[in-house]
Amino acid sequence: MSLTTAELDAVIAEATVDAYDEYEQLAAFRAVIEDRLALPFNKAVLGVTVTVTASRRRHPADSTDEVRSVR
């Protein structure tokens, strides 16, 4: 399913309407994504097909670089 720009703008507005700062906006937006995301799905990343099986939250204060594994 593909959203038009207007539909995507409406989803963003709905998700962030009660958020007061960027951290609340991010948390609200991620909640909407997790609610609407159909897992698992395949996607090409840099020419390699990967399977996305889960979403994981990182704390905003965690600035460490880490490698994420994909299959």
Rank of each mutant, 00 (worst) to 15 (best):
A15M: 00
S63H: 06
R57P: 09
T64F: 02
A44C: 06
V50Q: 02
S55L: 13
Y20L: 15
V45Q: 04
V50Y: 05
D35F: 09
T5R: 15
L3I: 14
R56D: 09
R58Y: 04
F29H: 10
R71C: 06
S63N: 06
E24I: 04
E24F: 03
T64K: 13
A61L: 07
K43W: 10
E24L: 01
V52Y: 01
F29I: 13
A10D: 12
T16W: 02
P60L: 01
A54Y: 01
A61I: 08
V70M: 01
Y20T: 14
R30K: 11
T64N: 09
V32C: 05
D62S: 04
T64M: 05
T49F: 00
Y20P: 15
R71D: 05
D18G: 08
L3P: 03
L26Y: 12
V67I: 07
A27V: 09
S2I: 15
E22G: 13
E66M: 03
L46C: 07
D65Y: 01
T5Q: 15
A15Q: 02
A10I: 10
Y23W: 13
T4G: 10
Y20F: 14
R68C: 03
E7L: 12
A28L: 08
I33C: 06
D21F: 02
H59A: 08
T53A: 07
K43D: 07
E22S: 13
V52G: 00
T16S: 09
E7A: 14
V67R: 04
V50K: 05
L37R: 05
Y23P: 14
G47P: 00
T51P: 01
G47F: 01
T51H: 04
A15G: 03
A27T: 06
S69P: 08
L26K: 11
E7D: 11
A61K: 08
K43T: 10
Q25F: 13
V70L: 05
M1G: 15
R57T: 08
V45N: 05
S63T: 11
D35W: 06
S63F: 08
E14A: 14
A61S: 08
R68G: 02
T49A: 07
G47T: 04
R36P: 03
T16C: 09
T51K: 11
P60Y: 01
V32N: 08
D62N: 06
D18I: 11
D62Q: 05
S69G: 07
L39H: 02
S2W: 15
L26W: 07
D35Y: 05
A13W: 00
E34P: 06
R71P: 08
S63I: 12
E7C: 13
K43E: 10
A54K: 04
A13Q: 08
T5E: 15
D65T: 13
T16F: 03
P40S: 00
A27F: 09
A61V: 03
V32P: 10
D18F: 02
D18R: 09
S2H: 14
E24A: 08
R30S: 12
L8M: 09
A6W: 11
T16H: 02
D21Y: 00
R57G: 06
E66Q: 01
G47A: 00
P40K: 03
A6I: 15
A13K: 12
I12N: 11
D65L: 10
E14N: 14
V48Q: 06
V67Q: 02
V48G: 04
Y20W: 15
L26Q: 11
S55Y: 08
